[in-house]
Design a protein around this nucleic acid. Structure first.
Length: 125
DNA sequence: AGTATGACTCATT
DNA sequence: AAATGAGCCATAC
């Protein structure tokens, strides 16, 4: 891989753009209880940007650089698949963290995903 | 500045 | 049912 960027520029710090969406995403993810999971689409929909699930993914990508820490492992795609595991520090970190939360993972997929699904629109608002 | 890409999802074929 | 197109919009090059 190419040399690391000096610092992952935080979109939040930019003045010309309104990045409150990112902050809202992190805030929602931080509220996901241990042992539960949610999806990109659910977060996007809760924030009123139902079609911007991709931006939620970008928010997760930036979430590693923010504090307090965001439990990004609790965010998966709508199939319960660990689509973002490749972006963690190690290929197994996401899965390991989920298992620590008490969630069973088999072949990059959450078992009985619907039972653990946590919808912010349903739980927060 | 224009094109390509993506931690997504839904509609259409 | 599986494949494809389209919408979304911030980053990367």
């Amino acid at each position: 891989m190419k040399k690391n960027k000096a610092s992952p520029k935080l979109p939040v710090a930019d003045k010309t753009k309104n990045y409150s969406f990112f902050e809202d995403v992190w805030d929602v993810v931080r509220q996901v209880p241990k042992g539960r999971v949610t999806t990109y689409g659910a977060i996007a929909r809760y924030l009123g940007a139902k079609s911007s699930a991709r931006m939620v993914g970008w928010a997760m990508n930036a979430s590693f650089a923010v504090s307090p820490k965001v439990p990004a492992q609790r965010v998966v795609n709508r199939n319960g698949m660990l689509s973002g595991k490749a972006h963690f520090a190690t290929p197994t970190l996401m899965e390991d963290l989920l298992k620590e939360d008490g969630i069973e993972v088999k072949e990059d997929k959450i078992l009985n995903f619907e039972a653990f699904f946590w919808d912010p629109a349903n739980e927060i608002g």
